[in-house]
Structure formats: structure tokens, C-alpha cells
């Protein structure tokens, strides 16, 4: 169940801050653009802080990708009809609370507002989860850790996180890694030579210059890794970057053409 340790390359002091928050059992909010490593960071922390103890949860982490139809029942649990019986089934949040695992609510602002308030009692000194359908109040396991994330970049004002929610979390900001570290990550994840990884990281850096000047989001480290993986599979570098990067980050013809010119400048086919 423990599995192997996820790869994570620290960029700043995020490991120390998270560890301190965990020691105090403070919930953590990770803020940063898409594909910059938030999820991997949580996986890594869950693995590292879970220690040798096994709580039956793979990787000591339950991840919920939030969406606008996510209901309270989806998080907490529901009654299911099984044969002649009605059976209560814990939701992912309840499972984590009971087992003392990490619960990671990814892109929390996408969830419905009535769903988000469910986590409030878990995030203060009470650390409880009321399950109203069962009339039960569940106290969180001492090792339970709640982590949420959101990307302030492209969220509209309508989807901003309410203060009553965000002021319950310790916040760690994430951004894309500097070129050398990003190259190291790409090289490790895609298993490509360092010089190719550096070129890809440079491409990422160049494309991110357009953020705010047409691009809502810069190209993610994840996409750079995808490009590297395609190249490793034998796809020509320009084609790989076009497929994994320029076509993925925008539909705007002009932006795409400009990005493809930069790809052409950086890579020889």
C-alpha cells in the first residue's frame, strides 16, 4: 500500500512550511497555476508525512477533483441500496477523516458553495465532520490533513474563494519552477537528456512571457513533460512541441503561430 516515493523537487521552502503546518494540523491551501506541481507536492507530502504507518489508503492520500456538480453527498457519503438493504457508504472526505489520511480537494472553487461549507468544521479547532444523514458527528483522526488547491489565474470573480473559506487555511504559493529546476524535473519525469530538457524549459519560459498578453495561463510544466515524453517516443521535437504545447495552450491562431515560431527557433528537426 505504501508504494514508492513520488518524485518532487523543492523549489523554495514549501516543504518546511507544509511540514510545520502538518505538525500543527493546520489545513493548507495551495495556490498556483495549472500544471505547476501542486498535486505532485501533495502526493509527496502525504507519502513522506505518512511515515511507515499504513492506514489502508493508497499513498496516504485521497484526491477529489472538484467540479460544479460535486455535492455534499459526493464528499461525505450516502446510502446505497444493495439487495434488500440500504447501506451507508462513506465518501472520500469521510474516509480520510476516519483513516487519518490526507484529503486533497483539487480546484476547490469549482465545487458548489453548499459543498464547500461542509469542510468548515474540519478546518478549525473542532476538526469534526457532521454527517447529517446519519446524525453522526465524526471527529477527525489525529493524522487527518486537509489540503485544498485553487488557481487564481483564470478563475473569474464569480468563482473566487470566499473569505470565510480561504481564511481557514495556511496558504502556500506555487509558480512554475525556474529554468534549471524545471529542466531537472522534465529530465527526470520524461527520462530525456539534460540538453533537451533545458531547451524545453527554455521554451516554457519563453511562452510564459505571453501570459497576460494573450495567454490566460502560461504553458505548464506538465505539458513540457508531455512534449519530452513524445520526443522520447520518437516524435520530432517540433511536432511534439506543437502537439503538446502550442495546440494545447490556445486556440487563437495568432498566438499559436507565434508560439510555433518560437518552437521552430528552439528546435531543429
Amino acid at each position: 500500500m505504501k508504494g514508492s516515493e513520488p518524485y518532487y523537487l523543492a523549489i523554495g521552502d514549501e516543504l518546511e512550511v507544509f511540514r510545520a503546518a502538518y505538525d500543527c494540523r493546520l489545513p493548507v491551501l495551495l495556490k498556483g497555476p495549472t500544471g505547476c506541481g501542486k498535486t505532485r507536492f501533495v502526493q509527496y507530502m502525504a507519502y513522506v508525512l505518512g511515515g511507515e504507518r499504513s492506514n489502508g489508503i493508497p499513498g496516504n492520500l485521497i484526491t477529489v477533483a472538484c467540479h460544479e456538480d460535486l455535492t455534499g453527498s459526493d464528499l461525505v457519503g450516502r446510502f446505497l441500496i444493495q439487495g434488500d438493504e440500504t447501506v451507508w457508504v462513506d465518501g472520500p472526505l469521510t474516509q480520510a477523516v476516519r483513516a487519518g489520511a490526507f484529503c486533497y480537494l483539487d480546484e476547490i472553487v469549482e465545487a458548489r458553495k453548499d459543498t464547500i461549507v461542509l469542510i468548515h468544521p474540519l478546518t478549525d479547532h473542532r476538526r469534526i465532520l457532521p454527517i447529517d444523514k446519519k446524525g453522526e458527528i465524526l471527529e477527525a483522526h489525529p493524522d487527518f490533513q486537509l489540503v485544498i488547491s485553487y488557481n487564481p489565474g483564470y478563475q473569474s470573480a464569480l468563482k473566487d474563494l470566499k473569505h470565510s473559506t480561504r481564511q481557514r487555511f495556511v496558504t502556500i504559493d506555487f509558480d512554475y519552477p525556474p529554468r534549471d529546476k524545471e529542466a531537472e524535473i522534465i529530465a527526470h519525469e520524461a527520462m530525456v537528456p539534460a540538453d533537451l530538457a533545458i531547451q524545453l524549459a527554455l521554451l516554457g519560459e519563453k511562452v510564459r512571457h505571453l501570459k497576460g498578453a494573450g495567454l490566460e495561463e502560461g504553458v505548464s510544466t506538465r505539458l513540457l513533460i508531455y512534449a519530452a515524453q513524445l520526443i522520447r517516443q520518437g516524435v520530432a521535437p517540433r511536432r511534439a512541441c506543437t502537439a503538446a504545447i502550442s495546440r494545447s495552450v490556445t486556440d487563437d491562431w495568432e498566438l499559436r503561430r507565434a508560439i510555433e515560431e518560437v518552437i521552430g527557433a528552439l528546435f531543429l528537426d
Binding site: K206, H209, L210, E254, V262
Partner: peptide
């Protein structure tokens, strides 16, 4: 001009 402006912005990091 639109494509080239963005090309220059990306390479140089300045608008």
C-alpha cells in the same frame, strides 16, 4: 505584426 510582436515578446520577455 501580431505574430511577430508576440514572437519578440516571447524571446525577449518584454512587451
Amino acid at each position: 505584426g501580431g505574430v511577430l510582436g508576440k514572437f519578440v515578446s516571447m524571446l525577449s520577455g518584454q512587451p
